[in-house]
Design a protein around this nucleic acid. Structure first.
Ligand code: DCP
Ligand code: MG
Length: 1154
DNA sequence: ATCCTCCCCTAC
DNA sequence: TAAGGTAGGGGAGGAT
């Protein structure tokens, strides 16, 4: 996420400046530098701390980010009174009324408890806590039970829930998540010591001396619920967590303070930024011509942007590499119809790696096979059976290696810049003196020398310059990265039993059999082996040497018996080394690490662990039970962690998995003036998505639009140049109904749906900061025209063994020769140009990975190439036909025709897999029709008058589908015969939630109560908390509640425009009511009734503006009642439009609110 | 219970 | 100037 280092005067950052780590010096715990450690493998056993995972700054970093976090730190210090900040004071806060129902319910309970406890006579002498109402948050020391006891015993009131913020006077905690920090920002948050010491002292000590302060990196971001899922949640959403940006590290802040404080004027209304804006950006943006040439409205913006986006390249490469690997394995499978591994699995007894290894491990390195394997003779010895003796996980005796280039982009750049070796270097767009000291250009990779200064990937260049003024910058060289990557993969593939492409500079390989073979050979050839320290590590060093020779770059290799540990080992290995983490060392190795050092666990997990378990340290966490971990992190995640702590991870390398979605996102440089520009952009983006779908010959049935909209509190121009800044994010999904009912990849169709969705949000186009289109529910483009075996087009197949698929054993002989080659498909003269084999997204000039083949292979250094050739020979049992046939036969592998072909990069096997019945949705087109088309039926005839008598609105009735009309009529009649109108059925609360179930009449016809009196409730500004009580949605539980909620919503925001989040949530709710899968739902009426109610409320408050046009050129002063009124009506129209759309689609007409 | 949808989270 | 993309795992909670 983002975040960032855009902040200049972040205290922590400044502190960092003053504590720059001098090369070689030890770095401190936390984030700062630690990984600088020149881990020159002098590794004191296992003890030495290893570098921290992903030092990248954005995340937790010490950071800053201004923009994104803003709100938080600004507001906190001016406290004074003890009242609570009134949320309605801030434009940004959102409606929290959904929690009131629960509040009412709990209040009673709470009071009862208090009374009970008090009466219980537990309260003895000093009631020093009298008057205090305390809530205890999360895990604490002492325990919640103990503290509660203490509180009650000394006269205080304990709150089990926090829904009554207006009552709670203090919050006790030992740790807060960022979301909580935000939530409690205006409350008194204190450490448990306050209570303990007070009791000790026999008097209530000043709480201020025990104010809770977050420890280092408390970022925010995650905010629990974030998004648009509830009206209530928006407050968090919009302020704390926001879209991606906001990591809002509050770590330093004095935050959490408590009492209400003075809020800077700027924070109060949307539009008044609390944070910094990029002045340079403001200046250039003011020029229309500049905008036209450099932002999202520029003609070739998308292509231009992608061409320069490192993250885009990273993602693209990953996909290509996975493809490449999958194809290579397919070839192996096709050729040998065996397990699914590479040849080495099939020909387990071929010399393979072992020989190459032995040949080369003598002397230094991998110079040609000059010789005999001397040292090889010394190996063995400590090889005990499986060699996993002390392994923590006795069931796992794999040998997994994690190979990763050291500061890849930098290393690649230094190949041609040897003079910069040894210096602090970073890769970023801004070069030379560009941007001066105010460049927000992001650093993609930093050399280890640069890291010693505290510089990290993800930082802005300006920040890096502060840490190291003489930092050297070098530009991106995407093509080179790709090229080096291909060589890297080519080498790995020659040695691996299995390979998982992780990224352009990183891969996981399973070398179990190779290592075993090495051991066996060594053992066999030299019975007296002695010294061989570690075949696996030697093997890793051999691989490192090959890659070094071929690419001129260092890769580090982590080795262990499972993926997770291999990854951890890599960090100890870096830079420029290898490290084998043995089972016997696992415990000690993990002990000093934190949870987020584990792959897959990030700051969110760290926070949760800290808050719920009191620690994020693995050593401590290892003492927890599985159940406790699951409780804190979720079932699956808890389990994974638990296993990890035991050194267990049974995941297999995964080298082929079908794609599930294709998407395009651009959240940079998005600036529109009008909707036409936004529309144009969306259509262009749709073309890009379409192109990507076509490239992989897929089509999709579902589309999701993602939108980033400037957060009202954020400055118009973000701190990061052209960045999106703090945003609210929205998504909307829709099924694409294409003519044939089939999936589509048509850019027009995609564009139309995407634009339609964007329009439906009715956002001000100038506020948009990011747009994304994602297509899901994919199916092969060739769906209809089955791929014919003969159509297989992979060069090597058509040439080398045209009929391979059907080829009998006799043909197999040729296979090895092909398969054996590096990732190539063109070992033999290929009829088709390389590029045609696998169309790649690239509209750029980079060569496709599909071209990895001979060309790459040939370019490898002579000696390396020879080594690989030897390896291939061994593995294949030699390209010799007779020998190969023999091998096949010996392995008694039945070679059958396989129903699997590779066509233009598409794995047909996967296709068939996808076509197989997976879930109803994907295989039941008929069902779909049923859903879309109301069953045929005849008209229902009834007069308007009669309908009215039955309590039904003719206008509404008219637009209902026939069956629903019947149903409604039946209910109404039945009701009218039996007794009063729906509401009279009273007592039972009805669940008003979108549901397909036909519902009994009761709640169907809601009669909007008369407009409530003006100031019905004194707008109690409790700072509503989203994800708080497990509840917002519960509050939708009854019709009455919805009405109450809406009313409260309008009331609360009578002087503020409604929050976009709330509006969209509300719309979503109503649409859901209306658009059930079943047409026979009373949801429609409910939705209509709710809309009517809303209408009534708005007319009550803003009647004047009801029919005002939404003139985009009209400038209305924010804060005025006109401004607010117009905003509410706009929201109303927006929601109404969304409902009409659904109604039109479903019933063919729109809703009437008369 | 299980599945599905709508997110969040994580990684490079 | 700068180029903050993307796909998959998984959790919460509603639908079936
Ligand atoms: N957020 C990120 C993460 C990575 N990268 C790019 C630049 C890196 O050089 C490359 C590889 O990522 P690594 O995480 O492996 O980082 P490095 O290779 O630079 O450093 P290390 O030595 O820690 O592996 O991907 C990037 O541009 N942005
Ligand atoms: Mg790397």
């Amino acid at each position: 996420m983002s975040s960032d280092y855009w902040e200049e005067d972040d205290p922590e950052f400044l502190a960092l400046l003053n504590n720059i780590v001098i090369p070689g010096e030890t770095v401190q715990p936390h984030n700062v530098a630690d990984d600088t450690s020149n881990n020159v493998d002098k590794i004191p056993a296992v003890a030495a701390p290893i570098s921290r995972k992903r030092p990248r700054s954005p995340e937790p970093g010490p950071n800053e980010d201004l923009q994104d976090r803003t709100t938080l730190s600004l507001v906190d210090n001016g406290s004074q009174s003890t009242t609570y900040l009134k949320s309605h004071t801030y434009g940004a806060s959102s409606f929290g009324g959904f929690g009131e129902y629960m509040q009412r319910k709990r209040a009673k309970l709470q009071i009862q408890n208090a009374e009970m406890d008090e009466e219980e006579g537990l309260a003895p002498k000093n009631r020093i806590f009298k008057g205090l109402q305390i809530y205890i948050n999360g895990w604490t020391e002492p325990s919640v039970q103990d503290l509660r006891q203490l509180i009650i015993q000394y006269g205080g009131i304990y709150h089990a829930y926090l829904d009554k913020k207006s009552l709670v006077t203090h919050i006790i905690t030992c740790s807060l998540t960022p979301a909580k920090v935000k939530e409690f920002q205006y409350m008194k948050v204190v450490r448990p010591e306050w209570l303990l010491k007070s009791v000790e002292a026999g008097m209530l000590l000043p709480w201020r001396e025990f104010i809770f302060k977050t420890e280092r990196r408390v970022e925010v971001s995650q905010g629990q619920k974030t998004a648009q899922q509830s009206l209530v949640s928006s407050s968090i959403t919009s302020s704390a967590r926001q879209s991606r940006d906001a990591p809002a590290p509050a770590h330093q802040a004095p935050v959490h303070i408590t009492a209400p404080m003075n809020v800077p004027e700027e924070m109060m209304a949307p539009g008044y930024a609390a944070d910094k804006s990029n002045i340079a950006a403001q200046r250039v943006m003011a020029d229309p011509a500049w905008r036209a040439a450099h932002t999202s409205i520029a003609p070739d913006f998308i292509e231009d942007y992608y061409r320069n986006s490192r993250l885009h390249h990273l993602s693209t490469w990953k996909a290509e590499l996975r493809n490449l690997v999958a194809e290579a394995q397919e070839r192996a499978e096709d050729g040998l119809s065996a397990s699914s591994k590479l040849l080495s699995d099939v020909y387990p007894d071929v010399g393979a790696v072992g020989k190459v290894f032995q040949q080369n491990m003598n002397g230094k390195g991998w110079m040609a096979s000059d010789g005999v394997s001397m040292k090889g003779a010394q190996l063995v010895k400590k090889d005990k059976g499986k060699g996993k003796e002390k392994a923590v996980d006795p069931d796992d005796d794999r040998v997994i290696m994690h190979c990763d280039f050291d500061s890849f982009f930098v290393s690649a750049g230094l190949v041609e810049r040897p003079h910069l070796r040894g210096k602090p270097v970073v890769v970023c767009h801004s070069q030379g003196a560009q941007g001066g000291q105010s460049s927000t250009s992001e650093i993609a990779s930093a050399s280890y020398e640069a890291r010693k200064f505290g510089i990290r990937g993800g930082m802005s260049l300006q920040q890096a310059r502060k840490l190291c003024p003489e930092i050297q910058t070098i530009p991106y060289e995407f093509q080179k990265y790709k090229q080096l990557s291909l060589q890297f993969y080519t080498i790995l593939m020659a040695h691996a039993d299995d390979l998982q492409a992780v990224s352009v500079d990183e891969a996981l390989i399973d070398v179990t059999s190779s290592v075993r073979r090495i051991k066996e050979e060594i053992l066999a050839s030299q019975g007296e082996a002695e010294i061989l320290q570690d075949p696996a590590k030697e093997f890793a060093e051999a691989i490192r040497a090959q890659v070094r020779k071929a690419t001129g770059c260092e890769v580090s290799v982590g080795i262990s018996y499972n993926i997770m540990l291999a990854r951890l080992a890599t960090r100890r290995a870096k830079p420029g080394g290898s490290y084998h983490l043995h089972g016997s060392d696992v415990g000690a190795f993990l002990e000093p690490l934190d949870i987020d050092d584990l792959h897959g666990f990030g700051h969110s997990a760290h926070q949760k662990a800290q808050e719920k378990l009191g620690t994020a340290n693995l050593g401590e966490l290892a003492k927890k039970s599985r159940a406790v971990l699951c409780d804190a992190l979720g079932k699956g995640t808890g389990e994974t962690l638990y296993n990890a702590l035991q050194g267990v991870d049974h995941r297999k390398l995964d080298s082929d998995k079908p794609r599930k979605s294709v998407s395009c996102d651009i959240n940079y440089g998005i600036r529109f003036d009008h909707n036409e520009q936004a529309e144009t952009f969306v259509y262009q983006l749709a073309e890009e998505v379409s192109r990507r779908l076509n490239d992989i010959e897929m089509r999709g049935r579902s589309l999701t639009l993602k939108v980033l909209k400037r957060d009202p509190t954020a400055p118009v121009e973000a701190p990061k140049f052209m960045g999106h800044g703090l945003c609210e994010s929205f998504t909307k999904q829709i099924q694409m109904a294409v003519p044939g009912g089939r999936a589509t990849s048509d850019h027009k169709v995609i564009g139309e749906y995407a634009w339609k969705l964007l329009k439906s949000f009715a956002f001000d186009p100038t506020e948009l900061r990011g747009i994304g289109i994602q297509v899901q529910k994919l199916e092969p483009a060739s769906g209809n025209n089955e791929v014919q075996p003969g159509q297989a087009r992979l060069p090597f197949k058509s040439v080398a063994s045209p009929q391979k698929p059907k080829a009998g054993p006799s043909k197999v002989a040729e296979v090895p020769a092909i398969i054996l080659q590096p990732p190539s498909q063109e070992i033999l003269p290929a009829p088709a140009p390389p590029g045609s084999a696998l169309p790649v997204t690239a509209h750029f000039d980079l060569p496709s990975f599909s071209q990895v083949d001979m060309s790459v292979f040939r370019e490898l250094p002579e000696d390396v190439r020879r080594e690989l050739e030897d390896e291939y020979k061994r593995r294949s049992a030699t390209p010799d036909v007779a020998q190969a046939q023999e091998a096949v036969r010996a392995a008694s592998i039945p070679v059958e025709p396989k129903v699997k072909f590779t066509v233009k990069g598409t794995n047909v096997k996967r296709i068939t897999r996808q076509l197989a019945p997976r879930n109803r949705a994907s295989i039941s087109p008929k069902k779909k029709n049923v859903f879309n088309k109301p069953p045929p039926s005849t008209q229902v005839k009834i007069g308007a008058g009669e309908l009215r008598k039955l309590g039904l609105d003719p206008a509404v009735f008219a637009v209902l589908p026939v069956d629903l009309q019947r149903e409604q009529l039946a209910y109404a009649r039945q009701k009218s015969t039996r007794g009063g109108p729906g509401r009279a059925l009273g007592g039972k609360r009805k669940v008003l939630k979108p549901t397909w179930k036909p519902r009994p009449v009761e709640g169907n016809v809601i009669i909007p109560p008369p407009p409530p009196p003006k100031a019905r409730f004194p707008v109690e500004p409790t700072l509503k908390q989203p994800g708080k009580a497990p509840g917002e949605k519960l509050h939708f539980s009854a019709t009455d509640d919805v009405q109450t909620v809406i009313e409260a919503w309008v009331e609360r925001f009578r002087e503020h425009p409604p929050n976009a989040k709330d509006v969209q949530f509300f719309a979503k709710f109503l649409v859901h009511c209306t658009d059930g899968a079943r047409s026979t739902d009373s949801g429609v009426q409910k939705a209509v009734a709710i809309m009517k109610w809303w209408l009534v409320l708005l007319r009550r408050d803003f009647a004047v503006w009801e029919h005002e046009d939404d003139d985009p050129f009209l400038v209305v002063m924010p804060g005025t009642s006109e401004y607010v009124g117009r905003a509410w009506w706009k929201a109303f129209r927006n929601v109404k439009t969304q409902m009409d759309d659904v109604a039109r689609k479903k019933f063919g007409g729109c809703l009437s609110l008369r």
